[in-house]
Design a protein around this nucleic acid. Sequence first.
DNA 1: GCTGAGCGT
Length: 135
Amino acid sequence: MDRTRALTAQNPNQTFSLRRFCSPPMSCSSPSNSKLFVGGMSWSVDEKSLKDAFSSFGEVTEVKILNDKAIGRSSGFGFVCFTNQPEATSAKDAIDGKALLGQPLRISYALEKVRDAPVVVHRLSSIGNGTSLKQ
DNA sequence: GCTGAGCGT
């Protein structure tokens, strides 16, 4: 009669796979190009280290590491450009989550930062409107 | 022997 275990609606042993399911490229994974954003690495990582780590998965054509803005801390995030997208994706999926110099790295697709002006007016050569007939 | 999110001239 005595149930040693009360049938509670919740089982303490039921582990819910509450893992991050933001993996599917349906959220914000819009790899415009083989540009990858590397961050979360130690503030002592160099470009050659990242390039060496990324070049192991593909040919890295662009490697850039930026430094902080105000405090001027060591560089903690950077950008890596591959010659191909599959290589970048492979490297991202491979290095992303790993630890470099003892710190976990965070790799994501870099935002297409246009260094040119966001507005391309390129001058309007339609001033005369074509029919400049002045009667 | 520092401090840990974010996207570059």
